[in-house]
Design a protein around this nucleic acid. Structure first.
Lengths: 303, 303
DNA sequence: CCACTTATGCTCCGACGTAGCATAAGTGGT
DNA sequence: ACCACTTATGCTACGTCGGAGCATAAGTGG
């Protein structure tokens, strides 16, 4: 009984803020895909291999890189040798050269994840569809209804930003994303909005988003996405874009300052048509100093 | 340029409470190792493969199972084909048949992780050694000292239960665990206490412990380790054993009750030589109901 | 009946998150 | 110069929750 012959593939979810929008690095034109590549004999470690592939395919170096999850389902394609996919989450800034890849907005791929504006027109489109799915099989309805309510924050349940993966999986099961085996849905049914990706890459993206949203709450990783100097307003915009949710400005500032995560540069930034904002710099020391609590999200119900 | 030929191996950290002690399922006699096995063509998924191997090698079924981390370092052994190790964390109860494996106490493998008693004789033995290591190279001393202080809670820093992996890695780097390439330490030096394990299995164990300690704080997973019915005292003992730390009794009860994690069975348990305790049962519904906050640890400084 | 143990109830306090009010300091238009 | 508007920043009131201590209940073993 010898071990199965398999090959390993590295998958990268590389995130950066482009303007005000959080984006992912993608390749491929008709249908986008994540940068990926096989593990080769020359690679020293999985992380190093991921770095090399991203660099080679997109021409950019990565800073922060963290392992996400390892998949190895049989049904990924019909090939005889099984492929194991090890996914990573990387964070960068987009200022450098563009390379070959394209930055694609998170919320064009997962539109229902953006709840910053009260609009939620997206959810208003999705809600009835998942409700219909829930009631489809009477025997499962009660469980499904509850699951919808929790993952999508219906019926008085709070909307939880980091349930990204659970939401994607529910939509997948409900046949509402084009990646689903759509056997059981008639082709004229309207699907949930959002561009599809190759294979299960959108699910991997959702995994990355979920991890990032969870992580900014207890570790100061937002700063990996910021320019060296920034205003508190920009920082807040970034956090809000990542969390897909508005935060209470004053409390956010207090939180950042009281934790001494940043230091004043003494300079100001005045290009917003309002009172000029102080420029701050991340105190990199905190990464050593403490196993620090990162950006808590002061929730706000208004707005 | 074809993909490297590799094999994949599953590694399991299976945890259960045996009496009052948290234990890991191990195999092998002179030096313990974790249950493990290669990924075979018949396996449907990584998780299923792990289940099968644990079952086959130890004769026990697993309930809760969660992916931990994937390793693939070149130096794991000298073989030409690379091995990728995918590690999992499993939780069970030990009441069933013992199978072939042996339950080994966490704290016999990682003694410095138990800070329930103020004894800390262990730490009192380790502290001077890591201090010596920190001061060994003057150029690195300041950074190393701070790292020791944070990971081991010295110099007024709080002791953080979930830094298990960081502590193990520090001891490894300092050459204080027998798994270290001990080149640079003279053989008569006294090492940190704790039984060694095969290969890097002890590091994997540390990873599992870290994950579990972190997880019980925000997800109700403790109950996977409890008998169907239990007293709040037993639950607290379990949490304390896992966290390696004492918690404030009254606050712990308040926390559990206010979250409605358990329900009264109406029965009592009177074998402790004190006032009989009510017996409770985990409300499995909460797993559905909410993405619930699990056992927060009401820290206690006294005791 | 007493000493001891475990279980359980209740209260006080301080930290922090939530929220609203108020002010400062720019821009662009009249 | 003045005004409307925008963004930045400061401060205070309030409620919730975690941290800690005091007190009581209800068993066991001498």
């Amino acid at each position: 009984m010898t071990a199965e012959v398999i090959s390993a593939e590295l998958l990268a979810v590389v995130v950066a803020m482009v303007g005000d929008e959080p984006c992912v690095l993608t390749l491929g034109d008709p249908t986008p895909r994540l940068p990926a590549g096989p593990l080769l004999p020359g690679h020293r470690s999985l992380q190093a291999a991921t770095r090399r592939w991203v660099e080679e395919q997109t021409g950019r170096r990565l800073g922060y890189l963290e392992q996400l999850y390892t998949f190895a389902d049989l049904d990924r394609d019909g090939s005889p040798t099984r492929t194991i996919s090890i996914s990573y989450l990387g964070l960068t800034t987009p200022n450098a050269d563009m390379g070959y890849g394209a930055w694609r907005g998170w919320y064009s791929l997962l539109p229902w994840e953006d709840t910053r504006t009260t609009s939620r027109v997206l959810t208003a489109q999705i809600t009835p569809q998942i409700r219909a799915w829930a009631d489809q099989q009477p025997s499962l309805a009660s469980g499904r209804r509850q699951r919808c309510a929790i993952t999508f924050g219906l019926d008085g349940n709070p909307w939880q930003p980091d349930l990204v993966l659970q939401r994607y999986e529910l939509l997948y099961e409900a046949g509402l994303v084009p990646e689903s085996p759509s056997d059981w849905r008639s082709p004229d049914d309207e699907l949930a909005p959002g561009d599809r990706m190759v294979g299960d890459h959108r699910r991997v993206l959702a995994t990355g988003l979920a991890r990032l949203r969870a992580k900014i709450q207890y570790r100061p990783v937002v700063f990996e996405l910021m320019a060296p100097e920034f205003t508190l307003g920009q920082l807040q915009d970034c956090v809000e874009a990542l969390a897909g949710r508005a935060v209470h400005t004053q409390n956010f500032r207090r939180l950042i300052e009281q934790q001494a995560l940043v230091e004043d540069t003494g300079q100001v930034h005045a290009e917003t048509g309002g009172r000029p904002a102080r420029l701050y710099r991340f105190r990199r020391e905190v990464l050593q100093e403490r196993h620090a609590a990162g950006t808590k999200l002061p929730t706000t119900r208004s707005r």
